[in-house]
Design a binder for these strands. Sequence first.
DNA 1: CTTGAAGCTATAGTTGCTAGAGACATTAAG
DNA 2: CTTAATGTCTCTAGCAACTATAGCTTCAAG
Lengths: 146, 146
Amino acid sequence: MLTIGKLGEAAGVKVPTIRYYEQIGLLPEAERSAGNQRLYGRKAMERLAFIRHARDLGFTLEAIRDLLSLSDRPDQSCAAADAIARAQLAEVESRLARLTALKAELERMVVQCAGGKIADCRVIEVLGDHSLCATDHRHPETELAQ
Amino acid sequence: MLTIGKLGEAAGVKVPTIRYYEQIGLLPEAERSAGNQRLYGRKAMERLAFIRHARDLGFTLEAIRDLLSLSDRPDQSCAAADAIARAQLAEVESRLARLTALKAELERMVVQCAGGKIADCRVIEVLGDHSLCATDHRHPETELAQ
DNA sequence: CTTGAAGCTATAGTTGCTAGAGACATTAAG
DNA sequence: CTTAATGTCTCTAGCAACTATAGCTTCAAG
């Protein structure tokens, strides 16, 4: 049995994060030692690794909650898991497209900066006047988030 | 003079967001009408457009605060503005690299899903066992944030 | 003059943690 | 066996950048 610190070390997750996952119900309530400290076995370790990996892949905690409950029902169809993964892939692809456009615009901006005074600065100028922009990177809906 | 609703419409920014920007000092306190409603002129409109555009390019509000105060001093060197923009470009490039790796991993995952039962699902399996992964996409430091 | 939209303030919620305070537990050294 | 250092406990508050809600006032159209 591992204490919370060892578990965190093993899984690459910070201690308060583990307690947070327990608090929001992503991890079950841990067993406790005589002195009230959390103790974890292999099952908890695996579950935490699953969460960590999914987080690394950008899944939200909500999506992970769904994936975990799916993985607890091995006899069911995997369509739902597949759908969640595909949705995440679509998310990533759209963010990628957006970031690629941003990169182009930022590059244009910094390349044009001649290094003079603010009054002549292309960076400030472009930010102040959207019409100086090559690409239309305005997205009312799509969040930059995550 | 525009009311807050018209300004928001014109700049593509929601009304509560404008009030929020005022609250955190990104926009100056607006003039008020006899009935205590905010009124905005061309200067406020331009400042808000600047903020909006910079947000669209992924600058944080902190960076925008700096850029705005720079743009208020047109006689100074533009080096600082350039540095902020370059930092943002670097940020975007690193996120781009990371997302590209995620995309590859997610694609691998969904392609391998044969559509059977959860017990055989590659999505769940890969998430549960990091060693099944092609790429090492674990980043202790680099946040996925933004 | 009435009605409905738009404005006001203030507070709380969102996501996914992270940081702090103050108290108890455990472990290693002396 | 004691002490000191570290680890853990709970609880609360904070971060970014908004968004939503409640309950009120003001404005513009008919």
